Simulated scan of single mutants.
Amino acid sequence: MTQPGKSALRAEARATRRHLAASFPGAAGKAALFVDVLPPGPIVAAYCAIGSELDPEPLVGALLVSGRSLCLPVVLERDAPMIFRRWSPGDPLKPDAAGCPAPLPLAAVVDPDLILTPLLAFDDFGGRLGQGGGFYDRTFAVRPGVMRIGFGYSGQRVPRLPMESHDIRLHGVLTEVGYTAARKV
């Protein structure tokens, strides 16, 4: 059950993110400059930005140059954890069960070492406010060893987010001002 305050937080965070996206169009390129401070791992799960989400495209290019392989999440069932399929820029995509662009079924299923996740808001303790579908939290729950990294604007940081029992904390967040590891709760 979602806390009543989360829908109000989401509405406010969406408005903030839209404002940040319009005000800082170069933020994604600046964030990509910090590719070398991301935690290690040969396979990184990116995502296809929707709406005002910070677009990981510049970071994807930097990850490829640094020798990492990429994959994208795929929702097969709305209430199940996501799977990940190998992906390179230019590979064909089609909408998955959640309507997000995803690699075709012929792409190999892989296990990422690091998952980049979009967000509406984040805090210093690894709290992440997502869209509310639970796709990332369900996926993180079955992949406890994977590094969970939020990707967003520094202006999406809030003092503290409410966390529910099913919410899984991030290990850190990458923004246009750098990478910050989550503080212990």
Rank of each mutant, 00 (worst) to 15 (best):
A11H: 13
A11M: 12
A11C: 05
A11Q: 15
R14D: 01
R14V: 07
R14G: 05
R14E: 09
A15R: 15
A15H: 05
T16R: 15
T16A: 14
R17C: 12
R18D: 13
R18H: 09
L20T: 02
A21V: 00
S23Y: 08
S23D: 12
F24E: 13
P25W: 15
G26R: 14
G26V: 06
A27W: 06
A28G: 02
A28P: 02
G29N: 03
G29T: 00
G29K: 03
K30W: 07
K30N: 03
A31R: 06
A31I: 00
A31D: 02
A32S: 09
A32P: 10
L33M: 14
L33I: 06
F34D: 03
F34S: 07
V35Q: 10
D36T: 07
L38D: 04
L38S: 05
P39H: 13
P40L: 12
P42G: 14
P42F: 08
I43L: 08
V44Q: 01
V44Y: 08
A45D: 06
A45E: 10
A46I: 01
A46T: 04
Y47R: 07
Y47I: 02
Y47M: 05
A49S: 03
I50F: 11
I50Q: 13
G51M: 15
G51D: 15
S52G: 03
S52K: 04
S52I: 07
L54Y: 02
L54G: 01
L54A: 03
P58I: 00
P58A: 04
L59A: 09
L59K: 11
L59W: 13
L59P: 01
L59S: 05
A62L: 08
A62W: 13
L63P: 01
L63T: 01
L64H: 09
L64Y: 10
L64F: 09
L64R: 14
V65T: 12
S66K: 11
G67A: 02
R68Q: 10
R68L: 03
S69C: 12
L70P: 05
C71A: 11
C71D: 11
L72I: 00
L72A: 00
L72G: 02
P73C: 07
P73H: 08
P73R: 12
V74M: 03
V74K: 06
V75S: 01
V75E: 03
L76V: 04
L76G: 01
E77R: 13
E77K: 14
E77P: 03
E77G: 02
E77V: 04
E77C: 11
R78G: 11
R78T: 12
R78Y: 09
D79R: 06
D79E: 09
A80K: 09
P81L: 15
M82I: 05
I83S: 01
F84N: 12
F84C: 07
F84L: 06
R85A: 10
R85E: 06
R86T: 09
R86L: 14
W87A: 04
G90H: 10
G90Y: 11
G90W: 11
D91V: 01
D91C: 09
D91L: 10
D91Y: 06
P92S: 12
K94E: 14
P95Y: 04
P95K: 09
A98F: 15
G99Q: 05
